[in-house]
Amino acid sequence: MRHQWYPVGIAAKLPDSPAESLLLGERVHIGRAKGGGPQVTDAKGRALPVLTRFGHVWTTLGTPERDLFTIPEADQPGRRLVDVGTVRVRCSPLRAVENFLDIAHFPFVHTDILGAEPHTEVERYEVEIREDSDEVWATKVRFFQPQAAKSAGGGITTDYMYRVPAPTCSILYKTSPPRPGEWDVITLFVQPMTEELCQVWPWMALFDDASTMTDMIHFQQMIFVQDRSILENQIPAKLPLDPGLEIPTRADMTSIAYRRWLKRHGYTYGAQLVAA
């Protein structure tokens, strides 16, 4: 996982003097280079590779084989791009991604917003590891939502697709309430600080001409703060790659596909290898 790109800051909000952070347990500093662009240095003061994409600054401690993934839909005209900010969570970076891939918790954790009883059933959906792109995809996911987005006027059945293009990044595509034929794009980019501590950087590319930027940011931050109370209270802290002490069901297929993909690639930073 050293050879992956990770988010470490919002490109438009880089600090004037370098800010200290952690990446995979190593100290890094994020700031500006002389020309004003982003600069990230490691503990020895060496400049690390950087790139700016999706409103965020990305860096790596290794030498990535591939370019950072792209999100073609986000380039469509008419979308508003939202830097949501950041939330620090005392959990495994992999658990943060797994939770983002889950719909069955909506009625209980995001009650009356992303879900509500009695609409708790998770219908069958499709999950695959795409060989060509080497990504996890879940498609044909449907769920009833009282208020799917800031722009939603009332309850709708929302269609979802989930995509995992990198071990600590996930993208969800969901029905855009004002434009039912299009997908809103909501991402969760996770900066793995340690195996049990992470910083999440959600980012959105939405069709929403009505809500203010502040409203859209607050909506997503509220959702994530609700998730944090779950993520900091799961046992064990690391994500189990052996489900021998858990009871996954068909509703957990995306979680299981994600864990299978981590296992196959040896992406185990933040993972628990034996059932615990």
């Binding site: 052996d242 996954p248 068909r250 957990d252 299981i256 864990r259 299978r260 296992k263």
Partner: peptide, 13 residues
């Protein structure tokens, strides 16, 4: 039975 398939797909390390 579905859940059994889901668990076995991941299985032990």
């Amino acid at each position: 039975v579905d859940a059994m398939e889901v668990g076995c797909l991941l299985g032990p390390i």
